[in-house]
């Protein structure tokens, strides 16, 4: 299956090499040199996924990420040379679904893109999951609280479904990382931490004192179904 990718990267060599390698992996690659160009392109045509460098001249990656998130839930993978926790977290907080650090191989990136896009059609079952006043419909990908739709990104939604499907049991961090991000994850906890935080902001009445998405110290997370 051919996916279309928008590669936003200011370094010309990287853009070319990554473009060639991703093309070999079977993706249709469009590229943009700057944040402005990326936003212009996205206004015209929407790719399946955006690969976004954080350090861009002009409108930087974080800004692009926030703008795209405000527009919708287009999947975004951050491609960064900065490995500091603060940069990664800022990117994820800005709404990215995943991140990879340079130097990355196109094959690894391809696996991640496929995993991310597989999350798209989550129509595994047409039952309605209920937890803590939330009504989750995996078949249509919607979450309602008291009749009002709660808007989640795909990754947040998938995370919530995984937790809700466990019907109150603990789901370990590793299980979540594998099931939601879909690949063998190399122990980085920031990705999950930030997504849990983002999810809580959207579904918890008081995100500072979570009553629904509970942390089980040393084990993982648990959805308080009765709460």
């Amino acid at each position: 299956m051919d996916f279309s990718v928008l590669l936003v990267e200011d370094d010309e060599h990287i853009r070319q090499a990554l473009g060639l390698a991703l093309g070999d992996e079977g993706f249709t690659v469009t590229d943009a040199v700057s944040g402005e160009e990326a936003l212009d392109l996205l206004a015209v045509a929407e790719p399946d996924v955006v690969l976004l460098d954080l350090m861009l001249p002009g409108v930087d990656g974080l800004e692009v990420c926030r703008t795209l998130r405000a527009r919708g839930d287009l999947p975004i993978i951050i491609v960064t040379a900065r490995t500091d926790a603060s940069d990664v977290i800022a990117g994820l907080e800005a709404g990215a679904d995943d991140y990879v650090t340079k130097p990355l191989m196109a094959s690894v990136l391809a696996a991640r893109i496929r995993a991310l896009l597989r999350r798209r059609g989550t129509g595994r079952h047409d039952e309605v999951l209920k937890a803590g006043g939330l009504e989750i419909r995996p078949d249509v990908g919607s979450v309602h609280r008291a009749g009002v739709e709660v808007h989640l990104t795909r990754t947040e939604f998938r995370l919530l479904v995984e937790l809700a499907s466990a019907s109150g049991r603990i789901v370990t961090r590793e299980q979540l990382l594998q099931r939601v991000w879909g690949y063998d994850y190399f122990g980085d906890t920031r990705l999950l931490d930030v997504h849990i935080r983002r999810l809580r902001r959207k579904v918890e009445p008081n995100p500072d004192e979570p009553a629904l998405v509970l942390t089980v110290r040393g084990a993982g997370y648990r959805l308080d179904v009765d709460g």
Partner: peptide, 25 residues
Amino acid sequence: AGDVSHELRSPLTTMVNAAEVLRRR
């Protein structure tokens, strides 16, 4: 250190991906 990291990682990204293309072909 951040600059060094960035300056080293950028060309490496080009190199490993160019190498991947070469290996494939």
